[in-house]
Amino acid sequence: MAKIHGAVVVNTDRCKGCNLCVVACPSHVLDLQKKEVNDRGYHFAYMSNPEACIGCQSCAWVCPDACIEVYRVVEK
């Protein structure tokens, strides 16, 4: 069976920590940084559970600041 591997890259400078990507992800891949902040003071998003990402792009579609790039590989 084909296995799908996904990954996201968050533009941490642009991220405003709104949490909408975290809520939108069906695989619970993302979280907001608990302590770290960007230079605007926002707790930016990151992959806390990268293995679970299926590259579905849900997070990227809902992100109001277009911070998320999505990568996807289908392993045959």
Binding site: N11, W61, A66, C67, E69, V70, Y71, R72
Partner: peptide, 8 residues
């Protein structure tokens, strides 16, 4: 080559 979504 694997990128499927990016900022317009």
């Amino acid at each position: 080559e694997n990128r499927v979504y990016k900022k317009p």
